[in-house]
Simulated assay, not measured.
Amino acid sequence: MKISVQSVNFNISQDLVNYIEKKVNNLEKFHDHIIGAEVFLKVQSTSEKENKIVDVKMNLPGIDIVAKKQSKTFEEAASLAIDSVKRQLVKRKEKLRA
């Protein structure tokens, strides 16, 4: 599976890239035909605080699964988004079996 991690308007640390790649690679357990994944990291500045946004897009044959989550840290937002993608992958695989 090909994983692309991109940051928008800031530099990303290698530790964060490794963390995200490890979490995304674990999704292969839940669906056999994952082609690739794209992860976008964004910082949204508001008047009160900065919010970290993580978009995860999984490429499957014939469909893309997308999740977008927001949190105080990239690690937490990535974890939430990847959990959401995992639920969608399991649901899709169960539909294919039926």
Rank of each mutant, 00 (worst) to 15 (best):
M1G: 06
M1N: 11
M1K: 12
K2Y: 11
I3N: 08
I3D: 13
S4N: 15
Q6R: 13
S7W: 05
S7N: 11
N9V: 05
S13D: 15
S13H: 06
L16F: 07
V17W: 01
N18C: 04
N18K: 09
K23R: 09
K23V: 01
V24L: 03
V24W: 03
N25A: 01
N25W: 04
N25L: 01
L27D: 00
E28Y: 00
E28I: 02
K29L: 02
F30N: 06
H31Q: 06
H31G: 06
I35W: 03
A37K: 04
F40M: 09
F40I: 09
F40H: 08
K42F: 02
V43N: 01
V43W: 01
Q44P: 01
S45K: 15
T46V: 08
K49T: 14
E50G: 00
E50Q: 14
N51M: 14
K52Q: 12
V56A: 13
K57G: 00
M58N: 10
P61R: 03
P61S: 06
G62D: 11
G62W: 10
I63V: 02
I63F: 05
D64I: 11
A67P: 11
K68E: 11
K68Y: 04
Q70A: 14
Q70F: 00
K72N: 14
E75W: 05
A78N: 08
S79M: 07
S79I: 02
A81W: 05
I82F: 06
S84D: 15
K86W: 02
R87Q: 12
Q88E: 03
Q88K: 10
V90W: 04
V90P: 04
K91Y: 06
K91G: 10
R92P: 04
E94G: 08
E94T: 09
K95Y: 02
R97C: 01
R97T: 05
A98S: 03
